[in-house]
Design a protein around this nucleic acid. Structure first.
Lengths: 128, 128
DNA sequence: GCTTAGTTTCTACATGAGGTAGAACAGCGT
DNA sequence: ACGCTGTTCTACCTCATGTAGAAACTAAGC
């Protein structure tokens, strides 16, 4: 499955931020951002990493299909293939999909959702 | 997180079956069942495993909090702590929970649900 | 053209999870 | 006391992930 490690997730957080801003990041960007990110912030990494470390992670994320790399430009540009929300929703479907009793799962899932979110869901379901 | 390996999942599948039937399984039960399980069936394991292998897995699942073991009886009794549906729903919440943009995620999630399931969801949300 | 600083690729090592199982120990029925 | 079955301990292998050095590569200036 597409389960991410801690560092992978941090890098994805940075890339996802760029995704919202429709920005393709370079390695340098990412390093700068990761240095800037504070504890608790998305993309936070508690230490200084070697450039190669980040590149390795980027390659692995690319292999996993989460990151796309523009090889044409000179510093390559890296960007998340899909938004964080899309990715998370997909993950939820993956989790759900492996169940033979989807209905039961959905029932439990709905059962433990906050009142406000239940409201949100109701609204979302009106249209479809 | 509670991400399971292949064998762990197979064992959980057997235990979950027992959970529905309100049955606590012994090691022997599980081995017999796993041998019986056919390809595609829940709890399927393609080969004969050593007893210790299954026991190790059970211990790890116990450590993860997914399995409870009755140590009083002589062959110990093993059982799933919660139903598969509960577990899966919990997993979905975990996935969702790590997102800062829960609403957006829910929107995407709902967006890619089948029509029939959307209907199910609507019904489920009526009561709450 | 040649050096240089930043980029990318290759290769490597450490750690931890999970699959797998032997060795040894413990309790029960005979 | 003996042996069978279940349990515990320990161990090994593989793979994912974190981490990074060494080397190859490239654009830009001198």
């Amino acid at each position: 499955m597409a389960t991410l490690g801690e560092l992978e997730r941090a890098v994805m957080d940075l890339l996802w931020a760029g995704h919202e801003a429709a920005t393709a990041n370079t390695l340098r960007d990412l390093l700068a951002q990761s240095t800037r990110a504070q504890d608790g912030t998305a993309g936070h990494v508690g230490k200084d990493l070697a450039v190669t470390t980040v590149l390795t992670v980027l390659s692995r994320l690319e292999r996993k299909g989460l990151v796309e790399r523009e090889r044409g430009t000179r510093p390559h540009r890296y960007q998340a293939v899909s938004s964080r929300a899309d990715h998370t929703a997909e993950l939820m479907h993956e989790v759900l999909g492996s169940a033979p009793d989807r209905e039961a799962v959905l029932a439990r899932f709905i059962g433990s959702v906050s009142a406000t979110e239940a409201e949100t869901l109701r609204k979302l379901l009106e249209h479809s």
